[in-house]
């Protein structure tokens, strides 16, 4: 049954990746083009002998087949992981039916996996980062991601523990508070990364970053809405609850 859920999760993830690709293609790509144009203009203005970088992959391929492949592989992987977490959470952490469980899980995962890490280490357009610090930046990004996921697990466990004493509403507030406190401490303690050149277009940066969040939002919305419906049919009748 779990293997069946995993395959369904990956298929839903591929579908979500296709939607995310569509969004990124329309709303994200123009900003990547602007960022590359900006980089070239800056290199020219600073009189750097515009080192003709040899293109391994053409821009058209990067923005087309490359973006599609990246989105779909990422979507399939996220969908697969989602299905495994769903398999554990369903009937254990929540008592909701498959659709509501999947929907809630997707919202929680979007906050913990995308939003919180992006608040500390936001997406950057091409040509902004310093290649020499890529190792350190990658490390910090994943530390933030892991802390965020652990904080989410702690928050849910705390809320469940307090549920019978405080009632659902107050237990939920306690869990959310715990999450915010852990994240606040982590984001305060972790070093800031800012490699944006002086004078870089703030508007371009904002638009690039919102389109990045939008792409993730599309991905998680499709997973959250589609997986529950698809999982419903994979769960044996005994494990299924009547949707309230």
């Amino acid at each position: 049954m779990v293997g069946n859920l995993l395959i369904r999760g990956m298929l839903v993830g591929i579908l979500a990746g296709l939607f995310a690709f569509g969004f990124a293609r329309v709303f994200g790509e123009p900003h990547i083009d602007s960022a590359i144009a900006y980089e070239e203009a800056m290199a020219e203005a600073s009189g750097e002998a515009a080192e003709e970088e040899e293109e391994l992959v053409s821009r058209e391929t990067q923005a087309g087949a490359g973006l599609l492949t990246g989105s779909v592989v990422y979507g399939a992987a996220i969908g697969g992981l989602f299905s495994l977490v769903f398999a554990y959470v369903y009937g254990r952490v929540t008592s909701f039916g498959p659709r509501a469980t999947a929907g809630l899980l997707a919202v929680a995962a979007f906050i913990a996996v995308v939003l919180v890490p992006a608040l500390k280490y936001p997406a950057t357009p091409p040509a902004v980062g310093n290649p020499e610090t890529i190792g350190e930046r990658t490390e910090l990004f994943f530390v933030m991601l892991v802390v965020s996921v652990i904080a989410a697990v702690v928050a849910v466990a705390l809320a469940r523990r307090l549920w019978s004493q405080l009632g659902g509403w107050n237990a939920g507030i306690a869990g959310a508070l715990a999450f915010i406190v852990i994240i606040a401490i982590a984001q305060y303690a972790l070093p800031t990364v800012n490699e944006i050149p002086d004078g870089y277009s703030a508007d371009l940066l904002w638009r690039f970053r919102t389109s990045s969040l939008g792409m993730h939002a599309v991905l998680w919305a499709v997973i959250g809405l589609a997986f529950g419906a698809v999982a419903e049919r994979a769960l044996p009748a005994g494990a299924r609850a009547r949707a309230a």
């Binding site: 923005a63 997406a123 091409p126 993730h216």
Partner: peptide, 10 residues
Amino acid sequence: FVHDARHLLG
């Protein structure tokens, strides 16, 4: 090849 996706996914 996956460079655009990598940047847009953050």
